[in-house]
Design a protein around this nucleic acid. Structure first.
Lengths: 143, 143
DNA sequence: TATATATTGCGAAAAAGTCGCAATATTATA
DNA sequence: TATAATATTGCGACTTTTTCGCAATATATA
């Protein structure tokens, strides 16, 4: 696992450094996407600026993917460190389930090609109400 | 159009105020999603704090949708003020095309129900290389 | 038009993100 | 394994973005 990570860095001419390992480890240990600030807190020995620079590099190299929730970006490991997936989030209780669908993936590729685009990456975020919340709270929460 | 907007506010027990109208107007005039800061600049007579509060309210009421590009959230009007769509962004030149597909929408609903979720909203963002960029720049840009 | 209440603007402050540069770590080479 | 060339870091200062409490004001209802 680590081996692959370091290979990606090296094969793209990047150094393997302590901050990069620390950020990668934090993301590996996390079981769900993290905010930038959370990553920084999980790597207290690393300067904030380096965390940001690392995150920017990881995004460029495709090591991570970032999605948004509310106004906040959340980052997690991408393939090959984590199987490709999307998120289904319950807007009541916040539970996050991972979604995989080859059919969806194929459709997105086709959609892109209809627009004469070569698809390189994508994000899909679904938001709704999970089964247990719709049982327990039949009335939508008021504002 | 405005009528609908004010109806949404009133029917959910919210007041129709100057800041809310200003933010809505700014989003209406924009032809593409805006950053929070851009919205604030387009509404100079409105205090920044009120712009943020308004944006938060709009999101809750489903008046707007927010997607991410890089690490920055972009907001635009949602249905019924703008037809439902998604984005296909060229990572080379930045051009944004709007994507619509009923088949995609249906599939997302089905995917959600497989997870026993009731789908309420979703975002799909595709990123890739547009036709003209893949002609002009056959070699991927290096880091 | 008066009253109750929701919302605003203000001021201040916290949080998030960025930048230049000297010091340091990493890599490649001998 | 030591050295030189270079990439990267940490630091410190700074800018930008976002949040908060509260008195003043605008809005909605009767």
């Amino acid at each position: 696992m680590h081996q692959d990570f370091e290979s990606i860095l090296k094969s793209s001419g990047q150094s393997v450094t302590k901050p990069r390992r620390a950020v990668f480890d934090a993301l590996t240990r996390a079981d769900s996407p993290l905010k930038n600030g959370e990553i920084a807190k999980l790597t207290p020995s690393i300067d904030r600026a380096s965390v940001y620079r690392t995150l920017e590099l990881f995004a460029k190299l495709g090591i991570t993917t970032t999605t948004i929730r509310g106004w906040t970006p959340f980052t997690e490991l991408a393939e090959p460190f984590k199987p490709h997936h999307h998120h289904m989030i319950c807007e009541r209780c916040g539970v996050v389930e991972e979604i995989e669908s080859d059919t969806l993936e194929d459709m997105l590729t086709i959609l892109a090609s209809r627009h004469h685009f070569t698809l390189r990456s994508h994000t899909v975020e679904l938001s709704g109400v999970c089964a247990s919340c719709s049982k327990n709270l039949p009335q939508p929460t008021s504002l």
